Measured scan of single mutants.
Amino acid sequence: RNRTTFSTFQLEELEKVFQKTHYPDVYAREQLALRTDLTEARVQVWFQNRRAKWRK
């Protein structure tokens, strides 16, 4: 699988949710996936990576 390149819009949407919660539930991830045209799995992995970055 190739690396996912996120658009500016997608990143803004993802970051917006991350500001509210670092652990969105499955429903929130599904909604975000639909809004950003990503799969729920991509959204989940983005949050994992974003939390790792945030901890540093």
Rank of each mutant, 00 (worst) to 15 (best):
R1D: 15
R1S: 12
R1Y: 08
N2I: 06
R3A: 06
R3D: 12
T4V: 11
T4K: 07
T5M: 15
F6P: 09
F6A: 04
F6I: 13
S7I: 02
S7T: 15
S7W: 05
S7G: 06
S7V: 04
S7E: 11
T8Y: 04
T8R: 09
T8W: 03
T8D: 10
F9Y: 12
F9A: 12
F9I: 05
Q10R: 02
Q10K: 02
Q10P: 03
Q10S: 03
Q10C: 01
L11A: 11
L11F: 02
L11G: 05
E12L: 05
E12M: 08
E13M: 03
E13I: 04
E13K: 04
E13W: 05
L14D: 02
L14E: 03
L14G: 03
E15M: 06
E15V: 03
E15H: 03
E15W: 01
K16A: 10
K16L: 07
K16D: 04
K16R: 14
V17C: 14
F18K: 00
Q19K: 14
Q19M: 06
K20F: 06
K20V: 12
K20N: 04
K20I: 13
T21H: 14
T21F: 04
T21N: 12
H22I: 06
H22P: 13
H22T: 04
H22K: 11
Y23A: 04
Y23C: 04
Y23D: 05
P24V: 02
P24K: 00
P24Y: 02
D25F: 03
D25R: 02
D25K: 00
V26Q: 13
V26Y: 07
Y27P: 06
Y27F: 13
Y27K: 14
Y27I: 14
Y27S: 13
R29K: 03
R29A: 04
R29V: 14
R29M: 15
E30L: 08
E30W: 06
E30H: 15
E30S: 10
Q31G: 04
Q31T: 09
Q31M: 10
Q31W: 05
A33W: 01
A33K: 04
A33S: 09
L34F: 14
L34V: 13
L34H: 10
L34D: 11
R35D: 11
R35V: 14
R35T: 08
R35I: 13
T36Y: 03
T36L: 12
D37N: 06
T39K: 04
T39E: 10
T39C: 05
E40M: 08
E40G: 10
E40Y: 04
A41R: 08
A41I: 12
A41N: 11
R42E: 07
R42T: 14
R42S: 15
R42C: 12
V43F: 00
V43D: 02
V43E: 00
V43P: 02
Q44V: 07
Q44A: 13
Q44E: 13
Q44L: 12
Q44S: 13
V45M: 09
V45I: 09
V45L: 13
V45W: 09
V45F: 13
W46L: 01
W46T: 03
W46R: 03
W46A: 00
F47L: 04
F47S: 00
F47R: 00
Q48K: 11
Q48A: 08
Q48L: 09
N49Y: 03
N49H: 05
N49I: 04
N49G: 13
N49R: 09
R50I: 00
R50Q: 05
R50F: 02
R50C: 02
R50M: 13
R50E: 14
R51L: 07
R51C: 04
R51W: 01
R51P: 00
A52L: 14
A52P: 01
A52S: 11
K53C: 08
K53Y: 11
W54P: 07
W54Y: 12
W54A: 12
K56L: 14
K56A: 07
